[in-house]
Amino acid sequence: MLELLGAGLIGLGAVFFVAGTVGLLRFPDVFCRLHALTKADGLGLALIALGVALQAGTGGAVFRIALIWGFVALASATCGHLIARHARQMAGGRHD
């Protein structure tokens, strides 16, 4: 039962990763693409981590998965901001 639920969560997570990738390919500029990457992939990873944690046996493994998710979430928000800032400065800091 738990295995099935875990597999379902991992599958759902994969759908969000696909959505993030489709957004990356279809969205018109770097800023919109960052929205797709930070948000869709972030939830995709969270769902996959949750699914794997359900199947993991030990508390240590669950903690490691949570730690990895936390670091990736922090890094993706920070990197998204840094890429957006760089893109704006390259574009000459246009404001609208």
Partner: peptide, 18 residues
């Protein structure tokens, strides 16, 4: 946030007005 952006990615016209 993720459902919103995923919906736009899959929708034909994306409804973007950045």
């Amino acid at each position: 946030g993720a459902i919103d952006v995923a919906g736009r990615a899959f929708s034909p016209d994306m409804a973007l007005r950045p």
